[in-house]
Simulated assay, not measured.
Amino acid sequence: MMSGYIDRSKDIGPFVPRKDDNIIICRCEEITKGEIRMAVHMGLWTMNEVKRMLRPGMGLCQGQTCSKNVKNIIADELGISASFLDEATARPPVRPIEMGVFGNEVEKL
């Protein structure tokens, strides 16, 4: 889905704590709703910006359980529809690979 233009000159007001800010949104990285809201008020207005700072979607589930909620929290704080926000860039987890795999070598027993 194509994102809309986000006007960064718009004043979204100061961060005001809420009762539900302690709710864990990303269980893998233990990130709360309040942390995400605070990041938006610090100027991180896209999924990728929030992901780079707080790491939601970078845990074991790779955002399968939290990305929609993170996106909705960002959109709510900005006062826009979630459809205006791009999805976070997906990257597979990095794991060490033995060099023999690249050379297509077969280990002999």
Rank of each mutant, 00 (worst) to 15 (best):
T65L: 09
F84L: 15
M42Q: 13
F102S: 04
E98N: 06
M53L: 14
S9E: 10
G79I: 07
G13F: 04
A90W: 14
G34N: 11
R95S: 08
F102L: 13
V94E: 07
G57F: 03
C28W: 05
L78N: 05
A88F: 13
L60Q: 11
R8Y: 10
E107F: 06
T65I: 08
E105T: 09
C61Q: 02
M2D: 14
T32W: 02
T46K: 11
S83C: 08
A39R: 00
A90E: 11
D11A: 09
C66Y: 01
A88L: 04
R37V: 10
A88I: 05
I25P: 09
G34Q: 09
N48C: 09
A82W: 06
C61H: 08
R18D: 09
E98P: 01
P14Q: 14
A39Q: 01
T32M: 05
N22D: 13
S9H: 05
D11Q: 08
M2I: 15
R18F: 05
D7S: 07
R55T: 11
M47L: 14
R95Y: 06
P96Y: 02
L54F: 02
E87V: 02
D21L: 13
P14N: 13
I23Q: 07
N69T: 08
P92L: 09
K33G: 00
P96A: 02
D76E: 14
C28M: 07
I80K: 03
G13D: 07
R37K: 12
V16F: 04
S81A: 10
F102Y: 10
F15Y: 15
M2R: 10
P17D: 12
M38E: 12
A82D: 10
E30W: 07
T89W: 06
I73A: 03
